[in-house]
Design a binder for these strands. Structure first.
Length: 281
DNA sequence: CCCCAGTCCTGCGGGC
DNA sequence: TGCCCGCAGGACTGGG
């Protein structure tokens, strides 16, 4: 579930680790199937212990610690991963720990209930490979309106499906795709090549507005309660959702339509049939 | 180019 | 009441 706003909230929550020296790397004991942590423990330690964290960045939906030895540690939370400096929600899903010195937080934790996420230590060259322009488009908060349009206006894909493609734009996931299309008044199944100039303009504006507001609220904690910030506190944006997971409810924008759910490339999409007309599909 | 189905994984909630 | 199954979807892969 963590998308751009949640991952950005994680990043901000752990900014206090900048300047820390890594003094220990531990894969925590866990009864569950182990998550992907690469490279193996000995190489991970050799290439990180004794180094300092020079910055904490977000790349799409990943949290990246840049080390002063040129390597980076990349946390990829996927569905249920959390990057924490406070106590985790529980012990049994705690997967990984960095022990730190020289800063207030003494440790950085990776917790993951479903374990689909990963922790990787990558060289500068590997970073370029993993996050090169063929793998990852411009960040959803940095892309210009013209570029968004030019990247997609020739595509026959549905706009909602295209927004989930990280090669087009990085950071948008299933939840915020529905929300920003609703805010822009665009039918999610509308083909990219049928969007008007006005559609692209409104989509760009809504993309920024929705993501910025969600960051202000520190992300969305859905009913399963999984998502937490770095201090293990829930986000608040779920109360602002207008369509996501609100099937059958009255649309809060127009007060007329009932939120509909459809499936696009095996994912749920929510929209308001009044605010998001199918015309021009 | 794009689509689709399958894979990973755990916990939950619906249905019987 | 208890158990089973389906579902949640981010990133990736292989086949069409």
């Amino acid at each position: 579930m963590p998308e751009l706003p949640e991952v950005e909230t994680m990043r901000r929550g752990i900014i206090g680790v900048v300047g820390a020296m890594i003094v220990g790397v531990e894969r925590t004991r866990c009864q569950l199937k182990p998550i992907s942590i690469t490279p193996r423990a000995d190489a991970f330690r050799r290439r990180s212990v004794g180094s300092r964290i020079s910055s904490v960045d977000r790349v799409g939906k990943r949290v990246v610690l840049r080390l002063d030895n040129g390597n980076s540690i990349v946390f990829e939370p996927r569905m249920t991963g959390l990057v924490l400096i406070a106590e985790p929600p529980n012990r049994e899903h705690l997967r990984f720990r960095l022990r730190l010195s020289g800063v207030k937080p003494r440790q950085l934790l990776y917790w993951d209930r479903r374990g689909l996420g990963s922790v990787r230590l990558l060289s500068a060259r590997q970073m370029q490979e993993y996050f090169g322009p063929e793998k990852l488009g411009p960040d959803a908060l940095a892309v210009a309106a013209d570029e968004l349009r030019s990247r997609l206006c020739g595509s026959r894909r549905a706009i909602k499906v295209a927004l989930l493609d990280q090669r087009v734009v990085a950071g948008i996931g299933n939840l915020y795709a529905s929300e920003m299309l609703h805010a822009a008044g665009i039918y999610p199944n509308k083909r990219c090549d049928r969007l008007t100039r006005g559609d692209w303009q409104r989509l760009h504006t809504s993309m920024n507005d929705v993501l910025e507001e969600a960051i202000r609220y520190e992300g969305s904690t859905l009913s399963d309660g999984t998502y937490r910030n770095a201090l293990n506190d829930p986000g608040g944006y779920q109360d602002c959702h207008r369509v996501y997971d609100r099937e059958g409810q009255l649309c809060p924008s127009c007060g007329e339509g009932n939120v509909k759910r459809i499936v696009q490339s095996q994912r749920s999409t929510f929209y308001c049939p009044i605010c998001q007309k199918t015309q021009g599909r």
